[in-house]
Write a protein that binds this DNA or RNA. Structure first.
Length: 422
RNA sequence: GGAGAGGUGGCCGAGUGGUCGAAGGCGCACGCUUGGAAAGCGUGUAAGCGCCAAAAGCGCUUCGAGGGUUCGAAUCCCUCUCUCUCCGCCA
């Protein structure tokens, strides 16, 4: 969430920039500011009262020690009213604080100045495109047909055992998954990231920390009995490592990478766009996360963007990079680059990665700070998929189909141990 | 799942109702000392919120979390949580 002081001191600027994200709730901002005013007043009163109570308590202690029990008891009576008053003030303060936090959670992150306004997907700006659209022999098969033909992914079995959106990978399909995961991890490690294997279930605090709660509640599975959430992305456990942490400045940047399964309810539409691997309830992803000094976070974002691009290049997939417009930017992000690969048989672009700078929005929520010379400051958090598997697999299958079978990209062969799926 | 012991500052560790944000030590920073270093000596060493233009200063909160008792809680009571030891179960 945004910092209160920042909102207060830059009210007009905040409103102007949020408008880029199609956020026009001026009233909310004003309400927050006036509620904070009320908070300060209440706290001042409470603090003064508590100071007085502390003084009286000290006095009573001294009097008892000197054996002046009578005087002590007289003062004691004075404290009764004060106590009642304080309890009330404390309650008021708590209500205000809670309400303030709730309101603050409704304010999205401020977009970076390079973000252009726009309604949605259609207004995203294409920054870069590389690789040629492959010429597949007609008729080119979509991946769900290829998956069946070569018996490498079984959607029906998944439906039987779990439900739609939970496929089985088998044989060379399973090996391909494992190869991609290893490849992505190795590339990240070579780029200086530390590998983590995170828990796949997180508690409520963590879900709030990275912003899945309260705004995206319906997207996560929820194990109510134990109050745990299966992670929708490794970003959640990996970033939350640093919840309530004050790092030393020289520890920055923190570079972490994690492979994990991801779980998403995604109660969405059905049809061609979500067929096969296009949208799943469970999928695999390698996620990179960085925690960086505010002065260098945009440099880092570029570095992470290049990392993701490098992976696609090595897999020889045609891809493009989009800079999301205000309307398509997520609630918590300041700037996001989306990566899409071209799927030859489906004749459309598929999103395979999203690289974002959250600036201090997540950090403020989870009190992630760093300390150099002066006071502790909020750090910046960034993350990106590097990469998400299912659509990569879909594109690999479709783009690399030949009469003899599906050709594995050269750089991946050491990981798969085979050159063809046939 | 059962029984017991614990959770104190960056770390170790003292503290069982009053002046304790907390002894002592380690670490770290600065200074003195030294030709230089070590040792030694001295000083400092949490975060958040508020008052203040700001600094200084002051006030409030924080000893796993939440609640309670009390004029006053790190210290007493209750609930939760985590860690350790033993037993049970188990990949």
């Amino acid at each position: 969430m945004l910092q209160l002081n920042y909102i207060q001191e830059n009210r007009e600027e905040v409103l102007r920039k949020l408008a880029v994200k199609n956020f026009h709730n001026t009233e909310l901002i004003h309400e927050i500011i006036s509620l904070d005013q009320k908070r300060k007043e209440t706290q001042k009163n409470l603090d003064d009262n508590l100071a007085e109570a502390n003084n009286l308590a000290r006095e009573i202690g001294n009097l008892f020690k000197e054996g002046k029990a009578k005087e002590a008891n007289e003062i004691k009576e004075k404290t009764a009213g004060l106590k009642r008053e304080n309890k009330e003030l404390a309650n008021t303060l708590e209500v205000i604080t809670r309400e303030l936090k709730e309101l603050l959670l409704e304010v999205p992150n401020i977009p970076h100045e390079s973000v252009k306004p726009g309604k949605g997907e259609e207004d995203n700006e294409c920054l870069f495109e590389e690789g040629s659209i492959p010429e597949t022999q007609e008729p080119a098969s979509p991946h769900w047909e290829l998956a069946e033909k070569y018996n490498i992914i079984d959607f029906n079995l998944g439906s039987k055992v779990s439900g739609a959106g939970f496929p089985f990978y088998r044989g060379k399909g399973a090996k391909l998954q494992r190869a991609l995961i290893s490849f992505f991890l190795d590339e990240a490690i070579a780029a200086g990231y530390e590998e983590f294997q995170p828990p796949l279930f997180v508690n409520e605090e963590s879900a709030y920390g990275t912003g899945q709660l309260p705004d995206k509640e319906g997207q996560m599975y929820h194990i109510t009995e134990d109050r745990l959430y299966p992670i929708p992305t490794a970003e959640v456990p990996i970033t939350n490592i640093y919840r309530d942490v004050i790092l030393k400045e020289e520890q920055l940047p923190v570079k972490n990478v994690a492979y994990s399964s991801c779980f998403r309810r995604e109660a969405g539409s059905y049809g061609k766009d979500v067929r096969g691997l296009n949208r799943l309830h469970q999928f695999d992803k390698v996620e990179i996360v960085q925690i960086q000094h505010p002065d260098r976070s945009y440099q880092t974002l570029e570095e992470m963007k290049d990392h993701a691009a490098g992976l696609l290049k090595k897999l020889a997939l045609p891809y493009r990079i989009l800079r999301l417009c205000g309307g398509d930017l997520s609630f918590t992000s300041a700037l996001t680059y989306d990566f899409e690969v071209y799927s030859a048989a489906q004749k459309r672009w598929l999103e395979v990665s999203s690289v974002s700078n959250f600036e201090s929005y997540q950090a403020n929520r989870m009190k992630l700070r760093f300390k150099g010379q002066g006071k502790a400051r909020l750090a910046h958090t960034l993350n990106g998929s590097a990469l998400a598997l299912p659509r990569i697999v879909a594109a690999l299958l479709e783009n690399n189909q030949t009469e003899k079978g599906i050709r594995i990209p050269e750089l991946l062969v050491p990981y798969t141990g085979f050159e063809m799926i046939d």
